[in-house]
Design a protein around this nucleic acid. Structure first.
Length: 602
RNA sequence: GCGCCGGUGGUCUAGUGGUAGGACAUGAGCUUCCCAAGCUCAUAGCCCGGGUUCAACUCCCGGCCGGCGCACCA
């Protein structure tokens, strides 16, 4: 076992054990034997996920001035015919009868025959090609001719409506729900580019082999932004992020053995051309700051550029955000410049405009040669070909207005030349004023995996240390992310402390804090319980509370405690949660609690 | 999908051809004036199906689930 495997094993085991025991996540449907690739988020996990989504929404929807929508998860076949998922999401597998290895049939053909885009070919033809070219198994060399080519589509199929119904699919990405509604969405954006539409929700992929717990699952949550821009004009506000430092892993560095990552700023990376698209660069910068905010360890994080081979064919520049988990780098977000690929595809298939009308600053007036053929002449004269002749005249006028300079003009229809008197063509030079043009927007797509990000937060927050000689493990989650913000305990559940603490817990909940109340076991046990689920602060009602109307507030990471007046408590806790202040700043303002044998009251 | 390994309370684990023991956790109580202490009691388990056998948690076969490797990951 390599170091990284051992590391991965140990981190994965520790985390999945913690996740299950503490209610972050666990495999679904366990009582019926379970089914691979589906996970249930328990109480702690669901809260953490909600906070993560809220933070994403705050940054990528609200702060960017975008609009969030919620589209269905089941969509009809036509959507995926247009998007390319029906063909492109198909894998054609052929299995070697000799050694049992499965291979991508389309890749074998492309590699050995010079045929391109074999993916698009029907199954029978692929089987035929394997036979014709006498392709062999790359692993063992056995002939593959005659082996069946199996089609495997990563999309879940379903039937819409009763009976045979209509073929539908679970969406493999949330993005299509935005693209197909573009005409409506553009209308809501008052046809003003640029605008962005976000969506947070589940997507489905029938993975061949789900792995690594929540990292590769068949149902997962995406948070996606589709930023629609006018490629000729719209630019992001790079000044906003130009000083943001990022760790980049560009193509050149991946190709050369031993080359380190590139630590630079977004501004420099754009200037140097490391990041080709300014829009992609902008969102890398925004994302960098966001990942820091939610608690990703930036020493275990990088942006990696897609190699040309792994890039989708429509993406001109694509970067992944990757986090290091148990020694492996895992994709947690993708940032792609998708051009007009998606909207154009839907425009072709849907017989609908997927454009925005962009008004020019000044109307442009141009001269245009037009014809208005006299059909009462052309009809009797040319019979059935009259219509085609009229079309030919129009085409000719656009192409070569000089042809209309003589007495007659000659057009060719179906190989035959016809002479038309100029006065019957209705030829004229017109002034045409255009106030704008229809533009198919380009799409910049930051696409986040919520589950993978959540797992990263847990992995990067997990700590073990020692407190008073006792080992403890805790999650150093960002206060904003933590499932519970504050634990409230009575030091003893007697002498009225319990009642006072319960009342305090209730008051804090009313003020909008997420509170856990616990009076079971000794105080240390309760601290450890909260430590393990990442609760950043614990409040204890003790014997002094009744006298001074103060409680102790304990910091998870340092275990330090200060005594805070109850009247200020909810404000202080909210500020700690929202990042308005750090626990360290409380020490200056409030009395620090020191507890030990020498301080204990007699 | 293929190969290797595994599956015992919530978690971690011991063990056996005659249906199971521990630790932690959890609950009740005692104790305890700030960091998993102690004591008593309680709850709770052999992944599923078939086979062999008088008898299967144990042996065999299949499935499901998990880990790892291969393949796959638009």
């Amino acid at each position: 076992m390599s170091d990284s495997e051992r590391e991965s094993d140990s981190e994965g085991r520790t985390l999945s054990e913690l996740a299950k025991r503490r209610g972050f996540f666990f495999p679904s449907n366990g009582v019926y034997g379970g089914v691979a690739g589906f996970y249930t988020y328990g109480p702690e996990g669901a809260a953490l996920k909600r906070h993560l989504e809220d933070a994403w929404r705050d940054r990528f929807t609200v702060k960017e001035g975008n609009q969030e929508i919620e589209a269905p998860t089941i969509m009809p076949e036509a959507v995926f015919e247009a998007s390319g998922h029906l063909d492109g999401f198909d894998d054609m597998l052929v299995e070697c009868a000799d050694c049992g290895e499965s291979h991508r049939a389309d890749h074998l053909i492309e590699d050995n025959t010079g045929i391109e885009d074999a993916e698009a070919l029907p199954i029978q033809e692929v089987e035929e090609l394997i036979r014709e070219h006498e392709l062999v198994c790359p692993s063992c060399g056995a002939a593959l001719a005659g082996e069946p080519v199996e089609e495997f589509n990563l999309m879940f199929e379903t039937t819409i409506g009763p009976g045979s119904g209509q073929q539908g699919y679970m969406r493999p990405e949330t993005a299509q729900g935005i693209f197909v509604e573009f005409p409506q969405l553009a209308e809501y954006a008052r046809n003003q580019l640029p605008f962005g539409v976000t969506q947070i929700g589940p997507a489905y992929r029938n993975e061949i082999s789900p792995r690594k717990g929540v990292i590769r699952v068949r149902e997962f949550t995406q948070a996606e932004l589709e930023q629609f821009v006018n490629p000729e004009r719209d630019e992001p506000d790079l000044s906003r992020v130009s000083d943001v430092e990022v760790t980049l892993y560009p193509i050149e560095n991946q190709r050369e053995e031993g080359r380190e990552y590139l630590t630079t700023t977004i501004g420099e990376a754009v200037e140097e051309g490391t990041i080709a698209s300014e829009w992609v660069a902008y969102y890398l910068g925004i994302a960098q700051e966001w990942y820091e905010r939610v608690g990703v360890d930036m020493d275990r994080f990088r942006f990696r550029q897609h190699l040309p081979g792994e890039r989708a064919h429509y993406a001109s520049d694509c970067w992944d955000a990757e986090s290091e988990l148990g020694g492996d780098w895992v994709e947690i977000a993708g940032f792609a410049y998708r051009g007009d690929y998606d909207l154009s595809k839907h425009a072709d298939h849907a017989d609908e405009e997927f454009t925005v009308f962009e008004q020019y600053d000044e109307p442009i007036t141009t001269e245009r040669a037009t014809v208005d053929p006299d059909m009462s002449y052309l009809g009797p004269e040319f019979g059935g070909t009259a219509g085609e002749i009229a079309d030919a005249l129009e085409t000719l006028a656009e192409r070569d207005r000089a042809a209309f300079g003589g007495e007659t003009v000659a057009v060719e229809v179906a190989g035959e030349s016809h002479e038309i008197p100029i006065e019957k063509t209705g030829f004229s030079i017109e002034e045409v004023t255009e106030s704008g043009e229809h533009v198919t927007p380009h799409v910049v797509e930051p696409s986040f995996g919520v589950g993978r990000t959540l797992y990263t937060l847990l992995a990067h927050a997990y700590r073990e240390d020692e407190v008073d000689g006792e080992e403890r493990s805790y999650l150093s989650l960002a206060p904003e992310m933590a499932p519970t913000t504050v634990g409230v305990f009575p030091l003893m559940d007697r002498d009225g402390l319990g009642e006072r603490a319960r009342r305090l817990a209730s008051d804090l909940r009313e003020s909008g804090l997420e509170v856990a109340y616990d009076d079971s076991g000794n105080i240390g046990r309760r601290y450890r319980r909260q430590d393990e689920v990442g609760t950043p602060f614990c409040v204890t009602v003790d014997y002094e509370t009744a006298e001074s109307e103060t409680v102790t507030v304990r910091d998870r990471d340092s275990t330090a405690q200060v005594r805070v007046p109850i009247t200020e408590l909810s404000d202080v806790l909210a500020a700690l949660r929202d990042g308005g202040r750090a626990f360290g700043s409380l020490v200056d303002e409030y009395e620090e609690l020191s507890v030990g044998p020498e301080n204990a009251p007699e």
